[in-house]
């Protein structure tokens, strides 16, 4: 469905002066720096997949979506969507994909929501029966019936986003691109949006690629995620894989029958908190090793209870980025290690 092979996008950044005359001066001065927004990224997405595209600000997330939809032309590399090169077949691609830019509206501010849908019906030449079927779905599942006759300017942010997503799906696209779909929404509105996208993906087999800051979006919707940093792809796999691969450790708190003292020392575990009979250990590996660890401990010292804490996924990724920033070399080495392709 989507194939991306070694794609790069460079922007020339001119040392610009503003104004017309300044711009004319810029025309002749060729001083510029190359900014690599996307650097040699490859991946592919099959029909019906839901993929999260994750990265900090300036990681080139939007640039990637713009290349996939034909808005931007890649500097190098190959990209095909439905076996078409997006920027060469922009109009055909536009009929096959739906796009939601979280911060840019497709809705007509002063008009009832219905009018924007009618306009899209005409733009995409949507058949009456298809239009009715889809509208019925949206009226119910997105609860558009609650506000379809109201001018957009009177809607809440969450209602507006529901309408945006309905609009993007009106022409039955095969792929839905979402750029920060939950940005600025409250918790309930986010939940509504997530469950709707999930449903469209699972039941209507719409492929989904969404960029976000919010890991919750990905955990809820996308079995698979791609992580980018500074234009490079640094992870491609499932959320669970990320957790077990990237997790810097698990915390196990054990409550002993009686205080075993300080000499509880085992391979692959650090004692990080000691409250007498309750001690917290940090171990390196995944779930299996955690259970092994508890078994081994319980053989030597009777234990009353234990609890296992997972590091928060956001903390993991934050830590990961930080390590990349601290030391680029280590970052690249890690990247080799982390790839689960």
């Amino acid at each position: 469905m989507i194939r991306v092979e070694g794609i790069s996008k460079e922007y020339k950044q001119f040392a610009r002066s503003t104004g017309v005359i300044g711009s004319m001066r810029n025309l002749f001065s060729r001083e510029h720096t190359l900014l690599k927004a996307v650097n040699e990224i490859s991946f592919s997405i099959e029909k019906g997949e839901a993929v999260g595209y994750l990265g900090p600000n300036g990681a080139g997330k939007s640039t990637m979506i713009k290349m996939l939809t034909g808005i931007l032309v890649p500097t190098s590399g190959m990209v095909t969507v439905n076996n078409l090169v997006p920027h060469k077949h922009r109009k055909e691609i536009a009929k096959k994909v739906g796009i939601v830019f979280g911060q840019r509206s497709q809705l007509w501010w002063d008009l009832p929501v219905q009018d924007s849908f009618d306009l899209h019906k005409r733009i995409y030449n949507i058949h009456d029966t298809d239009y009715r079927t889809n509208m019925n779905i949206f009226l119910e599942l997105l609860n558009l019936k609650e506000f379809i006759t109201q001018p957009v300017r009177q809607l809440s942010l969450g209602q507006r986003m529901r309408a945006e997503i309905g609009l993007a799906l009106l022409h039955n696209p095969d792929i839905l691109f979402l750029d920060e779909p939950t940005i600025g929404l409250d918790v309930i509105a986010k939940d509504n949006i997530r469950s709707f996208i999930k449903q469209m993906n699972r039941e209507h087999k719409v492929s989904v690629l969404l960029t976000t800051h919010d890991l919750k979006d990905i955990e809820e919707i996308c079995p698979r995620m791609l992580i980018v940093n500074k234009g490079e792809l640094i992870f491609d796999g499932t959320v669970d894989q990320l957790k077990s691969n990237l997790s810097p450790g698990k915390l196990i708190t054990i409550e002993f029958e009686s205080n075993p003292g300080n000499e509880v020392e085992l391979a692959n575990a650090d004692l990080i908190a000691d409250h007498g009979i309750r001690k917290t250990f940090k171990i390196d590996k995944g779930l299996d090793s955690a259970i092994d660890f508890v078994k081994r401990v319980s053989k030597r010292y009777p234990i009353k209870d234990f609890s296992l804490e997972d590091s928060d996924i956001e903390d993991i990724i934050r830590m990961y980025y930080r390590s990349l920033d601290n030391d680029n070399n280590i970052g690249i080495a890690n990247q080799e290690k982390m790839s689960v392709i």
């Binding site: 109009k91 536009a94 830019f101 840019r104 733009i123 995409y124």
Partner: peptide
């Protein structure tokens, strides 16, 4: 503002 992108996302 980056609003021009929207004009490149339709079959028009």
């Amino acid at each position: 503002n980056g609003d021009f992108d929207k004009y490149l996302t339709k079959p028009l």
